[in-house]
């Protein structure tokens, strides 16, 4: 069982986000493994373990040859990584990202399953996994809250508004997983040390057979025309609880006539 996991390296969500002058997300600080992706990495490791053979390969796209997030996933147990890093990708939208990741996935031989998070924590378009499947002409099941593999078939519980759908697909397939699908492991000290020497192949878009002139800003098919502060919501009164909190809340609700 060989599994490719798409991972994103993002600015720490705990830090206040900022945009560069060209309206792209500021990514020049330290990048970390998107927490949403740790679930896909863990899921892949467990599925390979269960199968008894195979390995987990990471595929990522990031500026400045950034690998710190990849090292975290390698420390969890992934075997190797392919990183696409190219200035031509600045301004890339979800569709370009999917095209680039799909081309990088093709470099990985014998992939039975491609896993990704349902959405990244910074861009959260939630379309890239399905777009990757479309580019690769593969079947896909999104929003998985449970994933099992048996006899060349992947069985998925797909999250829905009202509950879940039992879905299945022949392999190879693309599956996007929700947060909470498994409990991601913490990298061990041994894992962290081993990750330092695991192979990370860094490639440019030209190496993937993609024309740099049609991706990034030039290929986005969209133009950001304005970024402005949203109307702020005024904060009201804040009280330290002195035993009268319940009374205050009831009074507030009374005032709104909802009781």
């Amino acid at each position: 069982m060989n599994i490719v996991v798409c991972v994103k390296q993002i600015p720490d969500p705990a830090d206040p986000g900022a945009l560069d002058a060209d309206h792209t997300l500021k990514r020049d600080g330290k990048l970390i493994l998107d927490e949403s992706d740790s679930y896909g990495v863990e899921m892949a490791l467990q599925l390979v373990d269960k199968a008894g053979s195979g390995e987990v390969t990471l595929v990522s796209m990031a500026p400045n040859d950034e690998v710190s997030g990849l090292r975290t996933a390698l420390a969890m147990g992934a075997a190797k990584a392919v990183l696409v890093s190219d200035d031509a990708l600045k301004g890339a939208g979800a569709l370009d990202t999917a095209k680039v990741l799909a081309a990088a996935i093709k470099k990985v031989e014998g992939a039975d399953l491609i896993l990704a998070a349902t959405e990244s924590s910074d861009g959260y378009t939630g379309t890239v996994p399905e777009q990757i499947a479309a580019v690769l002409d593969l079947p896909s099941i999104t929003f998985a809250k449970s994933v099992e593999i048996a006899d060349g078939t992947v069985k998925v519980q797909r999250q829905t508004e009202a509950g879940y759908d039992e879905c299945e697909s022949p392999l190879p397939a693309v599956v996007s997983v929700t947060a909470g699908v498994v409990e991601p492991r913490y990298p061990s000290f041994k894992g962290i040390m081993a990750a330092k020497s695991k192979p990370v192949e860094t490639v440019k878009v030209a190496d993937l057979g993609i024309d740099g002139a049609i991706v990034g800003w030039s290929g986005a098919g969209q133009e950001i025309i304005d970024v402005a502060a949203a109307p702020a919501r005024e904060a009201g009164e804040v009280f330290e609880d002195d035993g009268t909190a319940a009374e205050k809340i009831v009074g507030f609700l009374d005032g709104l006539k909802v009781l």
Partner: peptide, 8 residues
């Protein structure tokens, strides 16, 4: 913040 994007 609110971003406005035009289809092109």
């Amino acid at each position: 913040q609110i971003v406005k994007t035009k289809f092109a």
